[in-house]
Write a protein that binds this DNA or RNA. Structure first.
Ligand code: MN
Ligand code: MN
Ligand code: MN
Ligand code: MN
Lengths: 223, 223
DNA sequence: AAATATTTTTAGATAAGTCTAAAAATCCTT
DNA sequence: AAGGATTTTTAGACTTATCTAAAAATATTT
């Protein structure tokens, strides 16, 4: 089946909403994420239903079928492989690659995806710490704890970001709070929930509650 | 200016026709190359004219403007850089890469093209021997002689192909008539214009007039 | 210079994807 | 359980890109 880029983007969006919420996805949620109107979503969801890519009953919300879900996962696989390529091979920063990957994910060639994966040595995570689905669509989710959930004296590694905005990624870049960095929580300030942390056993500095709420970490003992 | 893939493909097609023929390009020639109807071409050419990408007068044919030509050359640059990437880095054969490049050439990111070019060490020719336009759109054409134009006892290197079809490239692959191979014409058969050649000072074999007419060579003395 | 053939354009239809405005269904509050 | 608010769908319009069939212009024969 040949799908348009638009159809593919809808499938990916619905998949991400299913990951985030459980149960069927509202027309409005899709419209908001894809930045279009509810009317357009209703139209598209109907088309995807006739192609057996989603289940949808009037006024009851939308869910991907097995087939739709498989396509969505393959798109996410391609997106994250291309992001890895851009960072690992073309020396881009992690905050520069999303928009390019958004285009590259639509390149249709099974063998190209396979060769790219080999070229990159079968990476398991993309530059933002997100898991790359395998050829069969299997996704190994990290047990994700927010940095803000850590208690005093706990140590952890940064494994991912919740907020993918360039602004946030650039903040992380300048403060060296990058993927794989080691963090120890020295103090939690009761008043504003800000944290005093130590980075890679060296520099100590404070981060706001907002930053702590948007960084995923893996408690060191789990590694 | 944001162009659709369709608009980009028209510009590229018109450019290639201008390279091949001189003077303005007929509606039918475009229609045939792009595999659509003359009516569709008329519509599109009108749209490209309002965008100042082509000059077109009713019944008088079409020519790219400076702007249209620059866009076309950048597309060809991207196409050939991606083909080089696929062959040099992902280990594809030269006969497998065209369709993928046909998609990849539409990825919109100036910096990505630049980084790709650096990653590949600024290649001057693609895997089929075609010149890669530089960032400014400059194309260095090879002085192209067809293998069939060589006389008895002349020696030459294979520099490119005229027929880009998979069938032909696969024929070349099996007969080892690849880019850079050295050829000596041992005999030209009057009756059917077939050639007896020697490949890389070793194997001798016969090739048909058709094959000779579709292989570009550089006479060894010119190198 | 007519007649004929070919090329090109126009006219009108169709499909994908989008929009606004209005109608219909569902959800929430009292 | 009714009334109002919100969500979702429908209706109708618009754009891009395509097609077929017919009309118009140009080119080629005779
Ligand atoms: Mn991304
Ligand atoms: Mn996308
Ligand atoms: Mn090609
Ligand atoms: Mn193309």
């Amino acid at each position: 089946m040949i799908l348009s880029q638009t159809e593919e983007n809808y499938l990916k969006t619905i998949f991400k909403l299913e990951e985030k919420f459980s149960g069927s996805i509202s027309t409005n949620a899709i419209a908001e994420m894809i930045k279009t109107t509810a009317a357009s979503v209703t139209d598209m969801v109907k088309r995807l239903r006739t192609k057996k890519l989603v289940d949808h009953e009037k006024y009851k919300g939308t869910l991907l079928t097995k087939k739709g879900s498989a396509i969505a996962k393959n798109l996410i696989r391609k997106h994250r492989l291309w992001e890895s390529f851009l960072v690992e091979k073309l020396n881009f920063n992690w905050d520069e690659v999303h928009d390019m990957a958004e285009q590259l994910e639509h390149i249709k060639s099974k063998i190209l995806t396979k060769r790219l994966d080999e070229f990159l040595d079968h990476p398991k995570f993309d530059p933002h710490g997100d898991p790359i689905p395998d050829e069969n669509g299997k996704i190994v989710y990290q047990s994700e704890i927010l940095l803000s959930e850590l208690k005093q004296n706990q140590t952890a590694l940064i494994t991912g970001v919740k907020d993918h905005s360039s602004k946030f990624l650039q903040y992380l870049e300048t403060t060296k709070l990058v993927l794989g960095a080691k963090i120890k929580v020295l103090d939690v300030v009761d008043y504003d929930s800000s944290l005093l942390i130590q980075l890679n056993n060296k520099k100590e500095f404070r981060i706001s509650e907002k930053v702590g709420n948007n960084l995923f970490v893996k408690s060191k003992s789990v590694i």
